[in-house]
Design a binder for these strands. Structure first.
Lengths: 225, 225
DNA sequence: TAGTATTCGTGATAATTTTCACAAATGCTA
DNA sequence: TAGCATTTGTGAAAATTATCACGAATACTA
């Protein structure tokens, strides 16, 4: 139905796993890897790896494998990492702070350029050298800095209001950590991280552990090895 | 190949969404909902909702719908929520603290009963009324309290070591927030939350936004509405 | 150069998940 | 009770994703 070939969602989710492992290999001066190497390392079928890589436009050489440097470059392009992403974050509680300092982002070029909160105790203080602004200034600042990504780490009941303001400021992608569903115009992209999903599936499997059956799945999912 | 009918993974991921919304309905004194109601609210096809609910063992009445209270009870059972889950958390940085205070868990009966860290500055201090222990005491305490769930919020390079200790202490399920792949015995369940996956997919879609094609997906995924 | 061992790329197949569509069940109204 | 409007539960079809399996490309060795 679609003429544009889109990357399957599961493939997209594996992409960061590939990327992170490749960075490690580069660090270790490994210059070429095979789909089997990648697969064994990440617990993914090697045919799956090859299929994924072709989506990314990567080209390997039979009998040899893929050039690490080249793959990194391809994936980086696909992830929009090669150009820095500027973001703002609203809600500077523990979760907000945690996200700011999450080391996993380092390779992804995400740069948080402004912090917002509503708590007068927090507004005006500094975090990692940046002043925390009041949410009321959000629209203005976002417009001025032409920010594209907004991160929401406020309580669920505030989240929609914050999202509305982000949209009003022209933000095009929202990363939502509040456990609630947000309504935004169609052109705005939303990704919700729902920690309860993780907890729920874990505890479900725990409940079921007496049954021998267990799902496979990997980093995003449950695994038994 | 499996005789045991297992719940599809995507269904499992939707389960907490159902659960949370149902709690809201109960709060609002709504006693009966139809699959269409649920679907419209969560952006899931109503047939999908019905299919999912049958996996959960729920039974609705044609022409009427499902009893909210009954569904909550079924889902709660499936999630192991009805009996409290005790967990420990290792790594009391921002992320660890954020998880402890994440409001989304409230309905899930997760109870964090001990905190661990390696930083002497933190060990011995109190968090939410609980003393923070040194990681060296982990095995002992976990064994003694018979804890089943361990949460890892330490830097990636420490994560494997922590996982090993958890396993040694008899923990059966690990929720890993460190951006690395853990190796554990087959009987231990692992779920890794990789925040970079979220960031990566978000920024990917941002890069692609000029293409009209866009994935659908909902709370766990990207959506344009 | 010929032979062997790798490894990619991909058509075909299998497995999984979603959606369609409709019979059957239920309540409501008159 | 009969007729109508809902809504479930589920076979069957469609769509999506994962795996198999093999020809072709490449490097290496003798």
């Amino acid at each position: 139905m679609e003429r544009v070939i889109s990357i399957p969602k599961p493939t997209l989710e594996r992409l960061p796993l590939y990327y992170r492992r490749l960075l490690q290999w580069r660090e270790e001066k490994v210059s070429i890897v095979s789909s089997a190497d990648i697969g064994k390392n990440l617990g993914i079928d090697s045919a799956q790896v090859r299929r994924d890589l072709t989506y990314f436009g990567a080209v390997g050489r039979p009998g040899i494998g893929y050039k690490v440097e080249e793959l990194i470059s391809y994936l980086g392009e696909l992830l929009g990492i090669n150009n820095v992403n500027e973001a703002i974050i609203v809600g500077v509680g523990n979760l907000g702070r945690a996200i700011c300092s999450y080391p996993g982002f380092a390779p992804y070029g995400l740069s948080i350029v402004a912090f917002f909160d509503i708590d007068p105790q927090i507004v005006g203080t500094k975090i990692r050298g940046h002043e925390v602004f009041h949410v009321n200034d959000l629209i203005h600042i976002v417009k001025r800095l032409k920010i594209q990504i907004g991160i929401i780490t406020v309580p669920a009941r505030e989240a929609q209001k914050v999202a509305d303001q982000m949209v009003a400021g022209g933000i095009r992608a929202i990363w939502n950590f509040a456990p609630t569903r947000l309504h935004v115009p169609e052109e705005v992209i939303i990704r919700s991280e729902d920690l309860a999903v993780g907890l729920a599936t874990l505890s479900h499997y725990l409940v079921r552990e007496d049954l021998s059956e267990r799902a496979e799945g990997l980093d995003r999912g449950i695994s038994g090895s």
